[in-house]
Amino acid sequence: MTRRWLGATSALVAAAIAVAGALLTAAPAEAAGSLTVSVTIAVGSTQTAVSADPTNPTKVAVGSPTEVVTVANGTADTFTLTGITSLALTACDRTVVAPGASAVCTGPVTVAAGLASLAYEATGSFAADPAAVGVQASVPTSLFGVVYDLRTVFSGDFPPPAGGSAPASDARFLSLPLGYFLVMHVGFVNASNVPISGLTRTGVATGCAPLPATLAAGATIPDCTFTATTPVTWQDPLSFTVGATATGVLGDTLTSSATLLYGPGEDECNTTVQTAAQGERVTVTCFGFLPGINVAAILHSPAVPLGLKNTGPTGDFRFIFVVPAALEPGSHRVELSLNGTTLTMTDPFTVTAALAPTGADGGPMLISATGAVLVGGSLVLLAFLRRRRQIR
């Protein structure tokens, strides 16, 4: 009986080993390895791995960049990829991935402003169990949609009679005296959702406080007050533009500017005549200048200095000049400038040549005519006297 029991026991053990072997053989092969998913995104011209850490997300411009999702089959079984959640694509559907191989899938992703976390999940089944279709691997991602918004806050103080202050891009038509140096106020706001660096002013005079190396999101640079380096000149329209440049977190250059419009007005000079001859006196009438300044008057062209003219107590003044005898006939005008900056010019007027002599000498002709009159008169008198003698 003992031998029979031992034989039966041995047969049971052998059968159990055989069943266990069969079960092991039927177990899914993915247990021997793993299926992994990795994600990169196109940032500029390069592919950057997407962070899985919400505290340090991958920064990317708002829009629809291209994402690349790689599904690596590290198992010993063939994997059929049926889709990737969070990625709009069809190219990788039903892709068969051999053991040790990878499937690379690309597609656009919508990046909104601010933080966004997505999970990319590879769905599909292994050949050992084709009915077990589902999520086989996933990876979390964390993106931050970058929005840039650098703003210039700008205004200028106007002198009388306009007075007050006008904001940037104000379309009001305000007349300023020519020669006036406008007082400016300029500041900056980083309305972006990320910090910016390398902030540099443009179109602004020196004298303002240095700018910080980095300007945090939502931070403001207080107004800086300065005086324009050039006086108001006659243009259409009159304007003054300031701004800033900076570097964004993605390495691109940001620009911002604002333009203060303070014209056009009625400030100009005019001559009293449209045509003047060489050697003739011409009057120039001006108005709308800053009172009490000395402006240089120059006749063009070629440039003929006419001297300094004071704008007087009201900014309205006039002066007279003589057209040079040697000035070439043609179109000319008078320029008014302050310290080398042209403030305005008159409308062109025409210079003509002076009246030239005919070239004939009238002296001999006058003498001849006088002689003829005297001779004629003498003959008439002699004839009269003769007739009187004959009558007697």
Score class of each variant (00 low, 15 high):
residue 3 R to V: 09
residue 7 G to F: 05
residue 12 L to N: 14
residue 22 A to N: 11
residue 24 L to A: 14
residue 31 A to H: 09
residue 40 T to Q: 15
residue 41 I to R: 10
residue 46 T to K: 10
residue 49 A to V: 09
residue 54 P to S: 12
residue 58 T to A: 07
residue 66 T to W: 07
residue 70 T to Y: 08
residue 72 A to I: 03
residue 73 N to F: 02
residue 76 A to P: 01
residue 78 T to R: 11
residue 79 F to N: 02
residue 79 F to T: 03
residue 85 T to E: 06
residue 85 T to I: 04
residue 86 S to M: 09
residue 89 L to V: 12
residue 90 T to S: 15
residue 96 V to Y: 04
residue 97 V to H: 00
residue 100 G to C: 01
residue 100 G to N: 09
residue 104 V to F: 04
residue 107 G to M: 08
residue 110 T to V: 15
residue 117 S to E: 14
residue 117 S to K: 06
residue 119 A to Q: 08
residue 120 Y to P: 00
residue 120 Y to Q: 02
residue 121 E to G: 04
residue 122 A to P: 01
residue 126 F to L: 06
residue 127 A to T: 07
residue 132 A to W: 01
residue 133 V to S: 08
residue 134 G to R: 01
residue 141 T to P: 05
residue 142 S to F: 04
residue 146 V to R: 04
residue 148 Y to S: 15
residue 148 Y to V: 09
residue 149 D to I: 00
residue 149 D to W: 05
residue 150 L to R: 12
residue 158 F to S: 02
residue 159 P to H: 10
residue 160 P to W: 03
residue 160 P to D: 11
residue 160 P to F: 07
residue 179 G to F: 00
residue 181 F to D: 09
residue 183 V to S: 14
residue 186 V to L: 05
residue 186 V to R: 08
residue 193 N to I: 07
residue 194 V to F: 08
residue 196 I to K: 03
residue 202 T to A: 14
residue 203 G to T: 10
residue 207 G to H: 06
residue 207 G to R: 10
residue 209 A to K: 11
residue 210 P to W: 08
residue 211 L to W: 01
residue 211 L to G: 08
residue 218 G to R: 06
residue 219 A to I: 02
residue 221 I to A: 05
residue 227 T to L: 05
residue 230 T to E: 13
residue 232 V to L: 05
residue 241 T to F: 06
residue 243 G to E: 03
residue 247 T to R: 11
residue 251 G to K: 06
residue 253 T to Y: 08
residue 259 T to K: 07
residue 263 G to Y: 08
residue 268 E to Q: 09
residue 269 C to M: 04
residue 272 T to I: 10
residue 275 T to F: 01
residue 276 A to H: 01
residue 278 Q to S: 11
residue 282 V to Y: 01
residue 288 G to H: 00
residue 292 G to F: 12
residue 293 I to Y: 00
residue 294 N to I: 05
residue 300 H to A: 12
residue 301 S to L: 09
residue 309 K to Q: 15
residue 312 G to N: 10
residue 314 T to Y: 08
residue 314 T to R: 11
residue 315 G to R: 03
residue 315 G to S: 06
residue 322 V to R: 14
residue 324 P to D: 12
residue 327 L to D: 02
residue 327 L to N: 11
residue 329 P to V: 13
residue 332 H to P: 03
residue 333 R to I: 00
residue 335 E to G: 12
residue 337 S to W: 03
residue 342 T to R: 14
residue 354 A to D: 10
residue 355 L to V: 14
residue 357 P to F: 10
residue 359 G to K: 11
residue 360 A to I: 15
residue 363 G to C: 06
residue 364 P to R: 04
residue 367 I to P: 02
residue 369 A to S: 15
residue 370 T to M: 11
residue 373 V to Y: 03
residue 375 V to A: 15
residue 376 G to Y: 02
residue 378 S to G: 09
residue 388 R to H: 09
